[in-house]
Design a protein around this nucleic acid. Structure first.
Length: 422
RNA sequence: GGAGACGUCGCAUAGUCUGGCCUAGUGCACCACCCUGCUAAGGUGGAGUCCCGAAUUUCGGGACCGAGGGUUCAAAUCCCUCCGUCUCCGCCA
């Protein structure tokens, strides 16, 4: 949720932000109107309620024989209170709907426009040159017995797979490498719930734009999470947290579920785009002042991971229209995929400023004993199953084996390459 | 899944049967001040969260007793639904 006070004092800020996103600019004026009428009806109700409360005390103090008369007198007032309360509640709900139509304020430096309007921040590493015809990750995986796509489809349908043998071990190695890096960086490791209640899913902002991407369990009215960001953001919901010792940094390990609705026919081959995968996610609660610097730190940790597994990549600054409703700025890192001759997203880090925290009621005290204020939340990817695609393709060798980057070897029994025999 | 108990201001508890002096009491912890040359102490006052409205340190009003409904002039208190915790039984990859 946006800062309503800022909306009142500086609505142009929000109009401009909505415009940059290609979003609904009229939502700003709708919210302003709804706010005004909500305050009017709230004052009406509270004035009447105050009268009623005062009267209630009179009734309580009055001698028995006078009570009946007083009660008769106040009956009409009670009715008015009830009606005013109803109006106030309706206005409150309308306001809440209107204000939810406004997405997070886009930060300075975010390019305007849609999916293709990102800017490239930097490219790192060299594209591999092969003196043989490189195979795509599916061919490599089949050759080395790393995953079983056919049986995945047989058991669970399209976009499901089994990781097998060294494939399973490679994923665990990657996630453990990421976890160890996170721990070294001061993150608290977490294994999170992957089923959450509606208010948590709502609070993170995923239900607005990505609702058809999310699995819903009808029998229980709960959601499967597409990232542990959801559970980690909900972790401190409705709490006043202590940030005096610095940011709270969590590293969430979880399976992620995505319906991939609307991507039919896209990336159907292999494990690039799947309904279920594993991920290690960084999530940070910090002060609004710290958020910008923390975002750069998260990006830095992501790049460290990419460098550890020796992948060529670029960093892009996502355009406003491609941001989630909660994000004020987002950087993706994309690894080079040789057989596609293009970059594909491996990580994504968002600065949600105070937007998510407002919705989820997460606050801190800027000054000891002072008033509370919403915290800033940020998230970023450290490793996912998808990374296997880039690792396999970039590190494949002429003999059909895949070289294991040095950083991963300790997690794979020390082997230097995955071969059909290993 | 069945039966029962419980959910109150940071923690621990009173209040619920019998609705209204509950503006939710008390203890501990906390903060300020006072007293005591040290120490467990003693005294006075303060202290929660959220919203609205005036005023440049503040004041007034409202909401919150797990959540949401209902009854009533009036609900922590009575009724219903849901959620959570605990105990017992049943079931269990």
């Amino acid at each position: 949720m946006i800062d309503v006070e800022l909306l009142r004092t500086n609505p142009d800020l929000f109009r401009e932000s909505q415009r940059a996103r290609g979003g609904d600019v009229t939502a700003v004026d709708q919210a302003l109107e709804a706010d005004a009428s909500r305050r009017v009806s709230l004052t009406e109700f509270e004035t009447l309620r105050a009268q009623q409360n005062a009267f209630g005390k009179q009734v309580a103090r009055a001698p028995k024989d006078e009570k009946a008369a007083l009660v008769a007198q106040v009956r009409e007032l009670a009715d008015q209170v009830k009606q005013a309360e109803g109006r106030a509640r309706t206005a409150e709900e309308q306001f809440s709907v209107a204000v939810r139509g406004i997405q997070n304020l886009v930060l300075e430096g975010v390019p305007e426009g849609g999916e293709d309007d990102f800017t490239v921040e930097r490219e790192v590493g060299e594209h591999p040159r092969f003196d043989f015809e490189p195979k795509d990750h599916v061919a490599i995986g089949e050759h080395l017995g790393l995953f079983d796509l056919e049986r995945g489809a047989k058991v669970s349908g399209a976009r499901f797979y089994y990781l097998t043998g060294w494939g399973a071990r490679l994923e665990l190695a990657l996630l453990n490498l990421a976890l160890d890096q996170a721990i070294a960086g001061g993150f608290t490791p977490m294994i999170t719930p992957t089923i959450v209640n509606p208010e948590i899913m709502q609070g993170t902002g995923f239900l607005d734009q990505h609702s058809d991407e999310i699995y819903h369990l009808d029998a229980d009215d709960q959601y499967l999470t597409g990232t542990s960001e959801v559970a980690l953001a909900g972790y401190h919901s409705d709490e006043i947290i202590d940030l005096t010792a610095g940011p709270k940094r969590y590293a969430g390990w979880s399976t992620c579920y995505r319906r991939e609705a609307g991507s039919h026919g896209k990336d159907t081959r292999g494990i690039l785009r799947v309904h279920q995968f594993n991920k290690l996610e960084m999530f940070v609660y910090t002060t609004p002042e710290q958020a910008l610097a923390e975002h750069q730190r998260l990006l830095g940790w992501e790049e460290q991971m990419l460098q550890k597994v020796e992948l060529p990549y670029r960093v892009i600054n996502t355009a406003a229209g491609d941001l989630g409703s909660s994000a004020a700025q987002k950087f993706d890192t994309e690894a080079w995929i040789p057989t596609q001759q293009t970059y594909r997203e491996l990580t994504s880090t968002s600065n949600c400023t105070t937007y998510q925290a407002r919705r989820l009621g997460i606050r801190y005290r800027p000054e000891e004993g002072g008033k509370t204020a919403p915290v800033a939340t940020l998230n970023g990817t450290l490793a996912t199953t998808r990374w296997l695609v880039a690792i396999l393709e970039n590190h494949q060798q002429a003999d059909g084996s895949v070289r294991v980057p040095a950083a991963l070897r300790p997690y794979l029994g020390g082997i230097e390459a995955i071969t059909p025999e290993s």
